[in-house]
Nucleic acid binder design. Structure first.
Lengths: 343, 343
DNA sequence: CTGAAAGCGCTTACAG
DNA sequence: CTGAAAGCGCTTACAG
């Protein structure tokens, strides 16, 4: 006797449901579901009626209900090592730009370069039944790999090209890139080239291998000088490492830094200390980050296609999630040596 | 006759469910649900048994089922203008760091400083029934506000303190900060101070108001010189704007840039052009971004508490989502003028 | 090409 | 403090 009808036991959320659209269009809910998803053939005329009704009512499918019924959400989990590196933020941005218009939502997991954190993130994300997965690099614990494989969730690895590991990957050869920039230094007449790296992830190490290979190829294997620091990368650290290298190995006439932030810091430190670049020492970086072209002198570096990697990986994942064939499971997007005045 | 039992009509996903835990613990599913969520009183002994069973079975609650049943997901949508600004990435990182351990997932929406994009993002996110919302700034379309209010989803605004707008906010006074750094310039004896800004969002404009107020207070209202560009902020633009200002208004002896990237670019351009800083012109920035302390000379700027803003906003949202009282709905976290050698 | 039934895995709203 | 029933809003698996 409380008033209008339907006021008992109602858990209704007030939202427009599939059933509402079905009623308005004069068809069954399943038909609405199929028409709206474009799944299976629905008579064109019905299709039209359903779309019109959905639009008129302002129907928005409930992702939770859809996920529960289909046991697959509209989420794509993206695992990156850090948010403080422009590289990964650019990658993420590009991924989002192609996934969001396709109706997917991105879930970000930051792993801090830790295998344990990656595993934990994977475990938690997989519980959300993501439709897809994008992970950084090819190096991960066996447990993490098992988690991914066992889940059956399509996964694309980014930044490196991992043909050997199977699966799907989009990136470029870190080794070749390291080799190319070192070769550039050699070509400009440098003989005592050091490789300075921080935040020793596998990609950093691979660039070091490329560096060593270039020296070996030039018959300078005995002059290899890799200065590695496990500290996080920063401009301040770059400056400090420049000083250290020139102190420990004064004959050094060129330094290849594993990342532009280190190189930018080194350039600024050189300016402060009155060390001529490239006169006394040539400086090269990696990634072509914002600001590298503004340095004094402008920084010679390797431009990496992180945005395109993100876009292509997302595109590949889209195909996998839709069950469409992927013609090339491993995409090598290359890199570009950008010669500026610092080397 | 196909073999083992239970092979018909099964849509089972193989995952461990609440029912499995209930059976193992010898209680009803609702009791498990309550014990695990800590909702309502459950006998301590039962609670323990349930926890043990859940752990033994490796039970992970299904977020989709939970969202559908409770009409509230474990997602928090965060709307920021851009991913290319370190400021917002730091904010995001801090938000994630406090929300993820609390069991929430962050959904990122990038609005590109566009009211229309913000509205669209809001519409799409709200369909996901987020548990909470974090949005940047207090300026948004009436439609966007209506969307937020109408949804009933708890929302915290960040970066500015918006007591007037009601609701909840965490940030600092952009106006006061602009005023403080300008005062710093005045105190060091500068008389012809320009304010140079790009990417004219409301906060940038507020800083400009603070700048104007400081000049007015010093009796220099007639020397106000605001040079505004709607272009996106960048180091290169900062260099170009420095040149333009010194050309158009040669008497200028100090420039307050609305963001450190512009200021850093200006500093580098000054070095390139042989313009003495602070001798010929003092330079100040805003935000204290990475690299500002490495510049030549190091950049005087305003350190903004973006990480703490993110953390506190997340904390506040956590309370709102749990229905707990929030003692201070508007948190002013302040800022700090960092005096270095450029001004 | 269309539909009636059942179910996805939880929580709400009532009882006791 | 505990539970049996119903329901959240979709899609799957069968039929026709």
């Amino acid at each position: 006797m409380a008033g209008a009808a339907g006021a008992r036991r109602s858990r209704s959320t007030g939202r427009v449901t599939l059933a509402d659209v079905a009623q308005a269009a004069g068809v069954s809910p399943i038909t609405v579901s199929r028409a709206l998803r474009g799944e299976r053939a629905v008579a064109p005329e019905l299709c039209e009626r359903v779309r019109a009704a959905a639009a008129a009512l302002g129907y928005v499918p409930d992702p939770a209900a859809r996920a529960l019924a289909s046991s697959r959400s509209s989420h794509v989990a993206v695992l990156i090592p850090k948010l403080s590196n422009t590289l990964f933020v650019d990658l993420l941005d590009a991924v989002q730009n192609t996934l969001v218009p396709a109706g997917y939502q991105t879930l970000i997991g930051v792993t801090h370069y830790s295998a344990a954190e990656e595993e934990a993130a994977l475990r938690s994300f997989l519980a959300h039944r993501p439709a897809g997965l994008i992970v950084t690099g090819s190096d991960r614990s066996a447990a993490a790999c098992a988690l991914i494989d066992g889940s059956g969730v399509p996964c694309v690895r980014v930044m490196e090209v991992g043909r050997e590991e199977g699966g799907y990957s989009v990136g470029f050869s870190q080794r070749d890139a390291g080799r190319a920039i070192t070769q550039q230094l050699l070509d400009s007449g440098r003989q005592h080239i050091a490789y300075v790296a921080a935040q020793l992830d596998p990609r950093t190490l691979e660039r070091g291998e490329g560096y060593a290979a270039a020296l070996a190829h030039a018959g300078l294997a005995d002059r290899t000088n890799q200065v590695l620091s496990a500290e996080p990368s920063s401009m301040a650290l770059g400056g400090a490492m420049l000083e250290r290298v020139l102190l420990d190995a004064p004959q050094t006439d060129a330094i290849f830094f594993c990342n532009d932030d280190l190189a930018q810091g080194a350039l600024l430190a050189a300016l402060r200390l009155g060390i001529a670049v490239p006169g006394r020492v040539a400086v090269a970086g990696f990634n072509d980050l914002p600001g590298s072209d503004q340095m004094l002198p402008p920084l010679t570096t390797v431009a990496t296609p992180r945005r395109e990697i993100g876009a292509q990986a997302a595109q590949m994942l889209l195909k996998l999630m839709r069950g469409q064939p992927v013609d090339a499971p491993h995409l090598d997007l290359g890199f570009q040596v950008v010669r500026r005045a610092s080397a």
